[in-house]
């Protein structure tokens, strides 16, 4: 009965009461993480128990798997090797599909992000002569395509429609020697005209001598040509060379890699200049 005599166990009782108070306080007070201290302390204690139990069980399981359950591993290994070979083959196929999908996705994102009416088209051919930088797309007048419609890609400006057939159209790329577009330097707002150089290069012309153009500047469409909507990326200034007193050759690296182009968007929304033009009699 002595154990029931609290007076003889005053120390234990005191300890119990103090712990009770601490528990009571911990249940009400939040820690730094906003979780009650009681919960934090309980979790801390039991997580260590869990950790210990887990390490013991892992050790047992490791011993079992490492020594006892190794029967049949060789056959399983062979089977897995075959599966791996098949999987690697499938990965090659899927990778090609993913690239294609990514291209289409970026195109769709551009389509939804641009406040223009556009038609997506696929490039089905290129120019017969290397002197002409044109491509053929699979959309024509039956799809609402007309000449002088701007053609864009997710990375920037591609060119314009020069021939609109019923089901196909020809697009003059911006790098074609006969192509040109009104351009503006994004940083300094210097204006000029970008013309194709035949190769995968562009030149910026008709730029004022006092204009601020530097290597690395980004060029965007100015919209003054009446074909290309304003603000789309053309390319980056690659080199600025001085030829004579008042003449500069400004080389532009196009934003588009024309040789790997597959899908494009044709802008069907008329530019302000096109809207002002009188309708041609049929």
């Amino acid at each position: 009965m002595a154990i029931l005599d609290l007076r003889l166990r005053a120390g234990y009782l005191f300890l119990a009461v103090v712990v009770g108070h601490l528990v009571l306080i911990s249940a009400q007070v939040n820690g730094r993480t906003g979780v009650p201290l009681l919960e934090t302390a309980t979790f801390g204690v039991f997580s260590e128990v869990q950790r210990g139990a887990s390490s013991v069980l892992n050790g047992v399981a490791g011993a079992w798997n490492g020594y006892v359950a190794l029967r049949g591993v060789r056959a399983e290994n062979e089977s897995l090797r075959r599966q791996l070979a098949d999987a690697q083959l499938q990965i090659q196929q899927q990778r090609a599909l993913v690239d294609r999908t990514r291209s289409l996705e970026s195109l769709l994102q551009l389509q939804s992000g641009v406040d223009l009416q556009t038609t997506a088209a696929q490039i089905i051919g290129s120019a017969a002569s290397p002197d002409f930088r044109t491509v053929t797309i699979d959309k024509g007048s039956a799809d609402g395509i007309t000449t002088d419609m701007a053609v864009l890609a997710p990375n920037g400006v591609v060119g314009r429609v020069v021939v609109a057939g019923r089901r196909t159209s020809r697009v003059q790329l911006l790098v074609d020697r006969n192509a040109a577009a009104g351009a503006i330097v994004e940083r300094s707002r210097a204006q000029g005209v970008v013309v194709g150089a035949g190769e995968d290069r562009l030149h910026l012309e008709y730029v004022s001598d006092v204009s601020d153009v530097a290597v690395g500047d980004i060029l965007v469409t100015s919209g003054i040509d009446g074909i290309y909507p304003k603000g789309f990326i053309i390319g980056t200034v690659d080199a600025v060379e001085k030829n004579g007193v008042a003449y500069r050759t400004i080389s532009i690296r196009p934003a588009i890699n024309f040789s790997s182009l597959e899908d494009v968007l044709i802008v069907r929304t008329p530019t302000p200049a096109q809207q002002l033009e009188p309708e041609k009699p049929e």
Binding site: V18, H21, L22, L24, I25, Q28
Partner: peptide, 8 residues
């Protein structure tokens, strides 16, 4: 107050 502070 927080119950238990003065108690403790």
């Amino acid at each position: 107050a927080v119950i238990g502070m003065a108690g403790l």
